[in-house]
Design a protein around this nucleic acid. Structure first.
Length: 205
DNA sequence: TATTAGATGGTT
DNA sequence: ACCATCTAATAG
């Protein structure tokens, strides 16, 4: 099996997420080694999932077969990437949170002029998407059959369990106690954890 | 280094 | 009104 996480059931989406660490994402001339991911359950028990309230136009692809891209827009100007996981009909997915640029460095620097250091080229989900030059046109495309703009290839050696750390998911208001964020221990490209801070009213009453 | 506000637009 | 965010500016 070229993509072992592809056949894991939705109930094991956390395992799927861990398994993806160390994999290489390639799109538009840049390759990124995945260092941080988050799992989202499609079983209806995860209030943080975009699919928690059922099928909508935005999340429809999550209910389809595994191995496709769920791209969503956030805060008006950014996009984030997820790999759909689990059996068809269940909306599990893995958010690709951060990585290390391992090929196409010059291109990556051009695409992220705000990054002061190379380690920050893809140290966050929207930065990762920007470095790979993907947008909503990648919505629903496959990462496993070679027909889409992004492909994934496994690490030469599997990442040992002792190099993986787990903690609460970033930015989500609901179920912040669930430790479904996984990252490579000590890797400098992992995004800095920030607890979700409720936005203050724009104007006091 | 740590904290904060503003940008900006689809979704519910 | 709410966001699975990022950056620049500020304070210490």
């Amino acid at each position: 099996m070229t993509h072992p996480w592809l056949t894991l059931p939705a109930a094991r989406v956390d395992v799927a997420a861990r398994t993806m660490l160390g994999w290489r994402l390639t799109a538009n001339g840049v390759t990124v080694r995945l260092t941080e991911v988050e799992a989202y359950s499609g079983l209806g028990t995860d209030p943080a999932s975009h699919a928690h309230r059922g099928v909508t136009n935005r999340n429809a692809v999550m209910f389809g077969p595994a191995g496709r891209l769920y791209v969503y827009q956030i805060y008006g100007m950014y996009r984030c990437l997820n790999i759909v996981c689990g059996e068809e009909g269940v909306a599990a997915a893995v958010l690709l949170r951060a990585g290390e640029v391992v090929d196409g460095l010059e291109l990556a620097r051009e695409r992220r002029p705000a990054a002061g250091r190379d380690r920050d080229l893809a140290s966050g989900p929207a930065k990762l998407t920007q470095v790979l030059a993907l947008d909503s046109s990648a919505y629903g495309t496959s990462v496993v059959d070679g027909t889409g703009p992004m492909t994934m290839s496994p690490p030469r050696e599997p990442v040992p369990d002792e190099l993986i750390e787990a903690g609460p998911r970033v930015g989500v208001t609901a179920a912040h106690d669930v430790a479904w964020r996984f990252w490579l221990k000590g890797d400098p490209t992992v995004s800095v954890y920030r607890r979700h801070t409720p936005r203050r009213r724009t104007r006091p009453a």
